[in-house]
Amino acid sequence: MTAAAVAPAPARIAYVKRHSALVRVTHWINVVCLTFLLMSGLQIFNAHPALYLGNGADFDHPVLSLDATQDADGNVTGGTATLFGHSIPTTGVLGASKDDNGDLTARGFPSWLTAPSYQDLATGRRWHFFFAWIFAINGFVYLANLFFRRHLTRDLLPTAAEIRAIPKVALEHARLHFPKGEEAKRYNVLQQLTYLVMALVVLPGIVLAGLTMSPGMDARFPFLVALFHGRQTARTIHFVFATLIVLFVLVHVLMVILSGLWNNLRSMVTGRYAIEVDADAR
């Protein structure tokens, strides 16, 4: 860092072990799984691009729908996204987008976002369930490690002092001042809370909401239907949680870049993380 050059006492670089092998491996398996789960999930969504609440669908009042508008001859003229009855034009991206021939066609999400790119629900389901199995097993391994090998209490649960420091840390984060030295060894409180919500609520929740859409699982575990207030609500929550994961990934990747891309990437690949130790702070 250039800051070291102007500092009176040059900072010393020390390496710490940031992530355990299990966390690193499960992290990257998650990246692969979530990528294909998202793309195949959007393919499945496209088979009926609308979301509802309850058990049966109220087809006239979707929470969200992506629709195509047509002219008198049935040609697709545009796309709209409607959220709680409010529509906005989204031609080219949502509701209607171009197919391989360059023709505007009715399609919830565009082909570049779906797996496979062309409309094929059966194959989309194949991709989805294949990666869903890997994702669920991977998540189970991660959570077992979290609870049984003290990853939770040691690294992720904030202390009382850390909770009190939330406003200060939030301000520092907003100014893009990232912790250095000893502080950098530990996740800061915003990271802790975000990772906790992802690991304990959003990721397990999206699996449970997905299972609630299964008529077989609902016969075995009827409480799932009650927990999510109906299959259609579960489907909507599945979609909302997927959206939260996308937002998380965007912020996560941005933060990784801003707080030192190479150092962060290396720590998640090899475990080694460099921190600056103040030379006269020993």
């Binding site: 692969v32 294909f36 793309m39 496979p116 790119s117 194949r126 991709w127 369930f129 294949f130 199995w133």
Partner: peptide, 22 residues
């Protein structure tokens, strides 16, 4: 996998692998 997703979807071995989940 991402760029070849249509090729995987259309190949017997790709479908066979994905079908193991079923």
């Amino acid at each position: 996998g991402i760029f070849g997703r249509d090729a995987v979807s259309g190949s017997a071995s790709g479908v066979g692998l994905l079908d193991s989940a079923e």
